[in-house]
Design a protein around this nucleic acid. Structure first.
Length: 601
RNA sequence: GGGAUAGAAGCACAAAGGCUGUGCACUUGAUUGUCGAUCAAGCAGGUGCGGGUUCGAGUCCCGUCUAUCCCGCCA
């Protein structure tokens, strides 16, 4: 028999009661986390979002209530009125915040029952959770787990802290449209058919980029938005098709102002979890990051930098190395301290690992009792010793070498660096290591379709020092020169995650036109795609720039998880479906008819 | 689009190519101090799906589906 809550009100949460409450009569409501039946005595761990409180149903105290409690099962929803009593010294439970007390029930309302759950929320004394697909199907149950409750509530605190901070800094929160126009540049769009304009489509924003720039043209001066963004691309452990950004734009800015603002924001956010960040953040150019770490988002929680061996090998006959150098490539290595005893199997695994990034092979030098190497036969002992010396390897160390195109070497060794840090447990889990990566290249050449793409986005301003070369390169079509042009673009990096990226934008129509030319977008095409924006640029556009920060990525570091699904209430699977609501789904024939859409086949 | 791993009771797992099993959950009973309660009994699957190899297949092979991680893609 289920009962009504009536006018009963909670006096405390299940995490609130302490020794000083002893003697009070209180009302708790929550879920039965666990029941321990001792016959005349029944213990119930009552759970809500704040914690657990032990409730005692004592036959001696109230026969009627005790007997009623016999019917309780896991996840029943109950209201308990009772007295807070102190526990014996030896029955204090140090594992829970309310462990010094318990509640002796004198009233019990069974507000709802619950079927046996399809999986146990947490198996006591075990790290094992049910498989993720099952937990995603019953996400509302998985969310009852204290860890997810903590993550979701911490996210809310972070977001409200950000709002308050941006408000204090005199920013205006502005909502931009969700139904916008598709722009083929950048990520694939999610598209939405229009009923009133059959055959036409909206797109969901990949980011509010052009709208925030238009806000600057509109004289709104300091804009921000906690903006939902959509990208129809494949998922990863840190990527979902819809996600949230703190989107920021400022008029008359310089990079320093933006860095200061964001550093202040991060400082405030990380205070919530009692973490201190180094202010100002260290900085590194893109070029330096790639050379030293093989990554534009280096994880600075551990050392282990790359070493260039190209000089030592410039006269080598060994074909893979000679070819790499001939094609303007590189030979670089990682020195792993104390890994000189790696087995053949381990080295094979690492080789397989770098091959995923396009590396042909992984050569190694082991400095054990004697120095051995997979290259011994082809390079000879002397060269091996020299390489080990250049790599600053000492006895007991391991040197891992990759040769090839610069991009491949960086990708392979950059990823290997992180992989080895995980295997060797080199990462300080408590540390927060932020970094600004600056001076990104303007463009990236795509071999497959033989044109340049904007590395950041097509509205990014070139670096002042590179402006002359930029203009010349575009006018004369010198690809090599163009590839070297740097942008006023920067990324915020935290613990190896790119948590944000931004730039100073182009505010002059003539430069914007040049940029489209560099990207191979004809004036006609540009007008068709971005005409409204190009026109807007001509009506007195102030210099402006900004940044967008990924809320989920920030939350991943705040919550100490490596999975984005742990910091979102209702995430999607790797194949971009929602197992709970079973989306995407079919629509009625009538709906399609209204939209004038026919499904092929 | 590609690669890797996994799929067995409600859940998590063990099972040299040879009778399937363990823990938790669940049900019933016992139990005055537990907090991963304990004890006893009970309930419960034939291994994601489709083929193949074999005297015999969770186990080997092929395909497929789902989940996860990665490459490509994406900032």
């Amino acid at each position: 028999m289920l009962e009504s809550i009536g006018n009963l009100e909670r006096t405390h949460s299940c995490g609130a009661l302490r020794a000083e409450n002893v003697g009070e009569t209180i009302v708790l409501m929550g879920w039965v986390a666990r029941r321990r039946d001792f016959g005349p005595l029944i213990f119930v761990d009552l759970r809500d979002r704040d914690g657990l409180t032990q409730v005692v149903f004592d036959e001696e105290f109230s026969r009627e209530i005790h007997d009623k409690a016999e019917a309780l099962r896991s996840e029943f929803v109950i209201a308990v009125t009772g007295e807070v009593i102190a526990r014996d010294q030896n029955s204090i439970n140090k594992k829970i915040a309310t462990g010094e007390i318990e509640v002796r029930a004198k009233e019990l309302l069974i507000l709802n029952d619950a079927k046996t759950l399809p999986f146990q929320l947490e198996v006591a004394g075990s790290e094992q959770l049910a498989s993720e697909d099952l937990r995603l199907k019953y996400r509302y149950l998985d969310l009852r787990r204290p860890q997810l409750q903590y993550n979701i509530r911490t996210r809310a605190r972070v977001v409200s802290t950000i709002r308050r901070f941006m408000d204090e800094q005199d920013f205006t929160e502005i909502e931009t449209p969700i139904l916008i126009k598709s722009t083929p540049e950048g990520a694939r769009d999610y598209i939405v058919p229009s009923r009133i304009q059959p055959g036409k489509f909206f797109a969901l924003p990949q980011s509010p980029q052009l709208f925030k720039q238009l806000c600057m043209i509109a004289g709104l001066d300091k804009y921000f938005q906690i903006a939902r963004c959509f990208r129809d691309e494949d998922l990863r452990a840190d990527r979902q098709p819809e996600f949230t950004q703190l989107d920021v734009e400022i008029s008359f800015p310089n990079t320093e102002q933006i860095f200061r603002l964001i550093e202040g924001m991060f400082e405030r956010v990380f205070k919530l979890v009692n973490a201190r960040l180094p202010i100002p953040f260290p900085r590194m150019t893109y070029r330096e990051a790639m050379e030293r770490y093989g990554s534009d988002k280096p994880d600075l929680r551990f050392e282990m930098e790359l070493t260039d061996l190209s000089d030592d090998l410039k006269n080598t006959d060994f074909a893979p190395f000679a070819n790499a150098l001939e094609q303007n490539g590189q030979i670089k290595c990682l020195t792993v301290k104390g890994a000189g005893n790696y087995s053949r199997k381990q080295l094979d695994e690492l080789q397989e690992f770098v091959k995923r990034y396009g590396a042909g092979a992984l050569a190694w030098i082991k400095l054990a009792d004697e120095t051995t190497s997979s290259l011994l036969k082809v390079l000879g002992q002397e060269t091996i010793e020299k390489l080990a010396q250049t790599a600053q390897a000492e006895k007991g160390d391991l040197v891992l070498i990759v040769a090839g195109k610069k991009k491949t070497v960086a990708a392979g060794l950059g990823a290997l660096r992180v992989e080895i840090a995980k295997r060797e447990n080199l990462i300080d889990r408590q540390a927060f290591k932020p970094l600004w990566v600056t001076e990104f290249p303007m463009f990236e050449f795509d071999e497959s379709d033989g044109r340049f793409y904007a590395m950041h986005h097509p509205f990014t301003s070139p670096l002042d020092e590179d402006l002359e070369n930029y203009k010349r390169a575009i006018e004369t079509g010198e690809n090599e020169l163009l590839a070297g042009i740097r942008a006023k673009a920067y990324d915020a990096v935290l613990n190896g995650y790119e948590v944000g990226g931004g730039s100073i934008r182009i505010h002059q129509a003539a430069i914007q036109a040049l940029n489209f030319k560099a990207l191979g977008i004809s004036p006609e095409k540009a007008r068709e795609r971005f005409g409204f924006f190009l026109e807007a640029l001509e009506y007195g556009t102030p210099p402006h720039g900004g940044i967008a920060l990924g809320i989920e990525r920030i939350m991943m570091t705040v919550c100490g998880t490596d999975n984005i699904r742990d910091v979102m209430a209702f995430p999607k699977t790797a194949s971009a479906t929602d197992l709970m609501i079973e989306a995407p789904g079919d629509v009625d024939e009538a709906q399609l008819e209204e939209l004038k859409i026919k499904i092929k086949e």
